[in-house]
């Protein structure tokens, strides 16, 4: 198998090293241009199995707000971001919601839960927002 070179922009600190990872298949053979171990570790994961935290909103019924922000409780493989968002688009919940409530457990079998990022109380007063 021939080796290939993948450029990776490090996001670990404000220096923002632009390095390269040399790969043989999925195996990292060489790192160039990174200036710390943290950066090399980031690049190694980023080049093989990039992951991201995912945030979006789900619809709330009977709440002081119509939408509840939710966040994954761990990083999600990058290629699964859209599937997670699509899954959450179909979710509806009812107020009250407390912070940290699991809205979707083990989303798509990825081992990641989506949790309420905030509390939402039941809609109350007669002066509801328009």
């Amino acid at each position: 198998m021939t080796s290939r070179v993948q450029p990776i922009q490090c996001i670990g600190c404000p220096v923002g090293c632009g390095g390269e990872v040399v790969l043989d298949g999925d195996r990292v053979v060489e790192m160039r241009g990174f200036t710390c171990e943290k950066g090399e570790a980031y690049a190694a994961e980023e080049v093989v199995a990039p992951k991201r935290m995912v945030t979006t909103t789900v619809r709330v019924h009977g709440g002081a707000l119509h939408f509840l922000p939710v966040v994954s409780d761990g990083p999600v493989p990058k290629e699964a971001i859209f599937d997670c968002v699509r899954l959450l688009r179909g979710i509806e919940v009812t107020a009250p919601i407390e912070t940290g409530r699991v809205i979707v457990a083990d989303a798509l079998g990825l081992g990641v839960d989506f949790k309420a990022a905030r509390a939402i109380a039941v809609a109350s007063d007669g002066l509801r927002p328009a």
Binding site: T55, P69, V71, A117
Partner: peptide, 21 residues
């Protein structure tokens, strides 16, 4: 609603609403 708030203050990554909460 994105995350990245609170690393210094709470030593964990929160969303904006989470930080406010």
């Amino acid at each position: 609603i994105h995350n990245g708030f609170g690393l210094r203050k709470f030593k964990e990554e929160l969303t904006g609403p989470g930080y406010a909460d």
